[in-house]
């Protein structure tokens, strides 16, 4: 009886889920990339994170803020893991406003590892005004803030196309296959050879898109590697404990004539 009912439930749900495509017919599914950070034991590709940071710094950072990250994060375990000297040098390359000093004046000084990433604009309004009325979103948690996550971000970065016939675009609006509604106000900023990677990797559009997406995935989930590692340990521990408790339960219940 119960088995039959379970079958009924499963079948009904298959039927319901088969209705789904009606709703999302006009959306193009993002490209599926085999990211190294996927899966139960996924970790970030260190070199890719470092290259991704370079792309962010040289390309994205002129419009997009990452206000929840600090320069010190770049040297922390599970991230790009730049050396302490490198992190200090990266931080020092930015002029950070500080203050007020004892005279009540604001002043600028070279950045320190404890500083937050410097934002390109003083506030959202300034960022919006400078970008044709479209606010370039803060990228700290962007990968978590988009359906499709890293696949979606990567797909948008490589998804620029000429608009199909019949689609006219306003000035400052671009056609993108994967963007919701296909219209995006961010121009296609990536072109082959745009950045010169320190490690000699060829900077194709695809390579840069993958690297910067990896960097953004880490920025959104800096705890990912530790989370995966701890998770595996926790689950193994729980399974062992469950087994022991199960055996104890069987032993205790053997005193009564009821099955457990």
């Amino acid at each position: 009886m119960i088995k039959f009912n379970l079958k009924l439930i499963v079948l009904s749900f298959l039927l319901l889920f088969s209705l789904r495509p009606i709703q999302s017919a006009e959306m193009v599914d993002p490209i599926k990339v085999d990211w190294s950070f996927k899966g139960l034991t996924g970790t970030f590709d260190r070199a890719s994170l470092q290259r991704g940071f370079q792309v962010y710094k040289e390309v994205c950072a002129s419009c997009h803020s990452m206000q929840y990250l600090s320069y010190r994060n770049l040297g922390e375990p599970g991230g790009p893991e730049f050396s302490e000297q490198e992190v200090k040098a990266i931080a020092a390359s930015f002029e950070i406003e500080d203050g007020p000093d004892s005279q009540g004046e604001m002043f600028t000084r070279p950045g320190k590892p404890s500083d937050k990433f410097k934002s390109p604009y003083p506030n959202v309004q300034a960022a919006t005004a400078a970008n044709g009325g479209a606010y370039p979103p803060d990228m700290s948690v962007l990968v978590k803030a988009r359906k499709g996550g890293a696949n979606y971000i990567y797909s948008v970065l490589v998804g620029y196309e000429d608009p199909p016939p019949g689609v006219t675009l306003d000035d400052g609006v671009y056609y993108n296959k994967y963007m919701a509604g296909n219209k995006i106000k961010m121009p296609n900023n990536l072109m082959d050879g745009l950045v010169e990677y320190a490690d000699g990797t060829e900077s194709t559009v695809d390579q840069m898109a993958k690297d910067v997406t990896t960097f953004l995935a880490w920025a959104a989930e800096p705890e990912l590697e530790e989370r995966h590692r701890t998770g595996v340990k926790v689950i193994i521990y729980l399974i062992l404990l469950t087994t022991l408790v199960y055996l104890s339960m069987k032993k205790i219940w053997s005193r009564v004539d009821t099955e457990v």
Binding site: T230, V234, I235, L238
Partner: peptide, 10 residues
């Protein structure tokens, strides 16, 4: 808790 941990960690 095993199912719970599966959600939390993965």
């Amino acid at each position: 808790m095993i199912i719970f941990a599966g959600f939390v960690f993965f």
